[in-house]
Amino acid sequence: MSDHQHEESHVIEYGNYIFIWLGLLAFTGITVTVSGINLGNWTIVIALFIACVKSWYVLNYFMHMKYEDIIFKVFIATALFTFFIFLGFTFWDYSFTR
């Protein structure tokens, strides 16, 4: 248990946060720009992909997931897996009942 105490003191410097923030702003700019171009069904795919990339940075750096134990990552994977089961089965069901 004492190893948890060590992680507690993990300090992320201000500069790193500013760097991540600039990246997030840049990705936001890309999303807005891309949405103005007519790419058909790809627009939503690109928008969601960029949103996922942004989330990855927020989760890992702002929320410190990168520095947490493996069990936290297992939790996240389980939660996302559950969500995608809901999403997948809803569309599966829909495609059969239509």
Partner: peptide, 16 residues
């Protein structure tokens, strides 16, 4: 709250 908005923004505002 930020994470949820990251998805709400393109899904509601950026459909063109």
């Amino acid at each position: 709250v930020d994470l949820i908005w990251i998805f709400l923004f393109p899904l509601f505002y950026l459909i063109h």
